[in-house]
Amino acid sequence: MSNTRKTKKPDRQKRAATQDSWWEGLLDTCTCCSRFCPAAWLIVLCTILTRPAARMSAGVGDDPAAPRPTGWLATKMYVAVRFYRASISPTQPARCPYKPSCSTYAVQALHRHGAFRGGWLIMARLLRCRPAAARRRGFRDAVPS
């Protein structure tokens, strides 16, 4: 007879105590580099969009770059970017080669163009957020009007 012990799975409170925040594990999911790159940023953005807005307390006020957009989906995306700017971005060194930064661009695009066109502009900007592309554009990339 083998004496096997059943191990209990840690409950949510124990897991929460071992992690500093809910997104800590998401930062390690990027396989292309060890830094917090746009691919990991997109994972965090998608995760934030699927979380209820009542749980997100940080970064829900108006952003100095642009006021809160109208529309339900644009507002959800705005809250996600504000959460990133208030909670995640201060813990990371500045890496965006563009002026304005990608998060400022996202806030302005959502305010000016809404969820669909603004979301398209944000995705395009995140995909070209690398030093070589920024150099070709003179390190400036404003939101189109």
Rank of each mutant, 00 (worst) to 15 (best):
S2R: 14
N3C: 02
N3I: 13
T4H: 02
T4F: 04
R5V: 13
K6W: 05
T7D: 03
K9Y: 10
D11E: 04
D11T: 07
R12T: 05
R12V: 03
R12S: 00
Q13K: 08
R15I: 00
A16S: 13
A17D: 06
T18V: 13
T18I: 12
S21V: 12
W23L: 14
W23E: 10
L26W: 11
L26G: 06
L26D: 07
L27M: 15
D28E: 14
T29H: 09
C30L: 09
C30R: 07
T31W: 08
T31V: 14
C32P: 03
C33Q: 03
F36C: 10
A39Q: 08
A40F: 08
W41L: 07
W41Q: 06
I43V: 15
C46K: 10
T47E: 07
L49M: 15
L49V: 02
T50W: 02
R51P: 01
A54R: 03
A54W: 00
M56S: 13
S57K: 13
A58M: 08
G61W: 03
D63C: 02
A65C: 02
P67V: 15
R68G: 02
R68Q: 08
P69A: 13
T70A: 14
T70Q: 06
T70C: 06
W72I: 15
M77C: 11
M77F: 05
Y78H: 07
A80K: 11
V81E: 00
V81S: 03
F83I: 09
F83A: 12
R85V: 01
S87T: 13
I88Q: 06
P90C: 15
T91Q: 01
T91V: 01
P93G: 11
P93A: 09
P93E: 13
P93F: 09
C96H: 02
Y98N: 02
Y98F: 14
P100G: 13
S101Y: 09
S101H: 03
C102K: 10
C102Q: 07
C102T: 04
A106K: 08
A106L: 11
V107S: 00
V107I: 12
A109M: 05
H113A: 07
A115C: 10
F116G: 03
F116M: 13
R117C: 06
R117P: 01
G118Q: 01
G119M: 05
W120S: 08
W120Q: 13
L121H: 12
M123G: 10
L126M: 14
L127E: 04
L127D: 04
R128Q: 09
P131G: 08
A132N: 08
A132Y: 06
R136A: 09
R137Q: 14
G138M: 08
F139I: 05
R140I: 02
A142N: 06
S145N: 05
S145A: 10
